[in-house]
Design a protein around this nucleic acid. Structure first.
Lengths: 341, 341
DNA sequence: CTGAAAGCGCTTACAG
DNA sequence: CTGAAAGCGCTTACAG
């Protein structure tokens, strides 16, 4: 070890006071407990001299509250998750909570391991963007009433807090706008269709086309496995262009697919800087607009997701601290539509 | 509180064993301590039934080791920092460490507060991308021999671990390549010049031009204050085009400036998709290449930075655990050059 | 106005 | 092969 640092006891001994007294003044209860002004001064003084840092582990062990929340994401570097993480950290900090963060790499056993670890580290609650439909440790958390909120993805049949976006509505709006602009052969490019989220986006697409009396051509549907999607998307697009040569628009169920498609179009000499081909995407990235000036975008509300997520989590923590029965919540945060004519 | 969960004591009582015995088998020392096979089975069995989660706070309090490292970044959502964070988390996890993360928003008092908090939370060490030249709490950490490594920016006069990139060399290479391609009026766009990092990049630029016998025109130098850089860069570029109308190339000391410049060029009708104007940038982002196919890039080695950073940190932790004197290290990770002819 | 004591859940000499 | 006891650094009734 390097320097272990001074403890309450050190200060108490040095000042010939009890640990109790020192603890009280250092935790701001000096006046409340009626500690004399002078004693308080001496304590504060001494704490500074010894450069006292309270041991929050000891406090947490005692109080059962760690003032820490655990965040588990498929990846920290993905720009969507990174932005949400940033918001969560900001909101948590405002309420006096720190953040432990871990990525699951979309591997279920990693996710499970991280959940167990965070439980053992006694985080007060967790925010998780889950990897798979339902799962052992998440179910265990829920059963034990461990404060928990899911986002991005969730399990319709599990009664757990979750904050999601208005998947169906936003994709409906995007597709409707493409239709309004005159596009008729609109391809849907999506991934991991077992995800509830992706399904909802697909429903939005299908329903909107049906409502508009447009045939939903299965040949215009492309499903790109998440693993190796950068390669797989090329095959998918090739196939669509082959089977439906007059495809006139593309709707990407998530921005990472759009990015790869841009590259594909570029390589194929398909110009997307003009308004020719119709484009729409759920979420975007830096420079999206410059590459595809006419793309319609439903921006994920990262701020709203981060904020709701923390609010809901703290709501559960506080309710349970107060011994109340807690009813899990669903929060739907609308996307910000960015449509171009 | 929700469920407090079972403790060693609960298991011990239930099995009529001592906490010692239970602790030993659950921490894998069963065989070493010669606990009978049967007892071990019973303990493990019971732990499962009670769904025992060891309280790592208690362990840490006892052992003085939290197996946690603290990471402080200007921003979690910035793509460079997010990628480094991802690597750090990965490397740390491999070694059994968890990550606490906080953003300083490039505000010095936030940074200080987070350092104090992490000290109190007893992280075993910290990785910081500091905000300002030198600083109270960082100096305090160094004085107390607290395991610490700085990255991205650092203080030449403080003897602290740091991992940085080959700023001067990489910018030299970029500028030299522009010169080789025939550009002569190369503007340098930089920010926060008080940063050691930015200075080095500027030196690379200046030296390379001088060596090539090219006049270093102060009018070609643009310094964009970090605060509100998205607005400020426009003024800067306007000024350069005014004073040096035949400027033929731009070297951006960091990618975020390049991104804004792309927008500026686009708005001004300056086409960068052809090879006309010379471009170079330290680091890049998604879609960079599509927007500016001919830009020369020195990619920041996020993997290398993440890896070195935890290696060095763990090196210090282990050395000090072993009671050895530790000498702070400097690690320079080279950028990956991506030059286009 | 201040203190002695118990306890949070672990680990680890020490003892048998 | 197993246990009693002290201690990590805090907080918090309880007592005076």
């Amino acid at each position: 070890m390097f320097q272990m640092g001074a403890s309450l006891k050190d200060i108490a001994e040095r000042l010939n006071l009890s640990k109790t007294t020192v603890s009280w003044v250092l935790s701001g209860q000096g006046d409340a407990k009626g500690i004399s002004e002078m004693t308080q001064q001496r304590v504060i003084q001494c704490a500074q001299e010894l450069s006292y840092h309270p041991n929050l582990l000891a406090r947490s062990l005692n109080t059962g509250v760690s003032k820490t929340i655990g965040l588990i994401l498929p990846s920290i570097s993905d720009s969507f998750y990174a932005h949400v993480a940033n918001e969560i950290e900001y909101e948590a900090k405002k309420e006096g909570y720190s953040l432990m963060i871990a990525s699951s790499n979309a591997e279920i056993e990693r996710e499970n391991a991280m959940i167990r670890l965070f439980r053992s580290k006694k985080v007060d609650g967790m925010v998780i963007a889950p990897t798979k439909i339902s799962d052992r440790e998440i179910v265990a958390l829920a059963n034990d009433r461990y404060p928990l909120v899911l986002f991005d993805r969730y399990f319709p049949d599990l009664n757990i807090n979750h904050v999601i976006i208005d998947n169906e509505k936003s994709s409906s709006m995007l597709v409707r706008h493409l239709v309004e602009k005159g596009y008729r052969k609109i391809a849907l490019i999506t991934t991991n269709p077992h995800l509830f989220t992706m399904n909802k986006r697909r429903e939005g697409y299908v329903n909107t086309l049906s409502d508009a009396g447009i045939h939903v051509d299965p040949n215009l549907y492309g499903e790109v496995p998440y693993i190796n999607y950068k390669e797989n998307i090329k095959t998918t697009l090739d196939r669509i262009f082959e089977t439906v040569p007059d495809v006139d628009a593309f709707f990407f169920a998530t921005h990472i697919l759009a990015i790869e498609a841009f590259q594909y179009f570029h390589d194929k000499g398909i110009d997307i800087s003009k308004g020719g081909i119709g484009l729409a995407s759920m979420h975007s990235e830096t420079l999206f607009r410059m590459v595809a000036p006419y793309i319609d975008i439903a921006h994920f509300p990262v701020k709203g997701i981060g904020k709701s997520t923390v609010q809901v989590l703290l709501g559960q923590i506080k309710a349970q601290e107060a011994g109340q029965e807690y009813v899990p919540q669903e929060v739907v945060v609308p996307c910000l539509l960015d449509l171009v004519d």
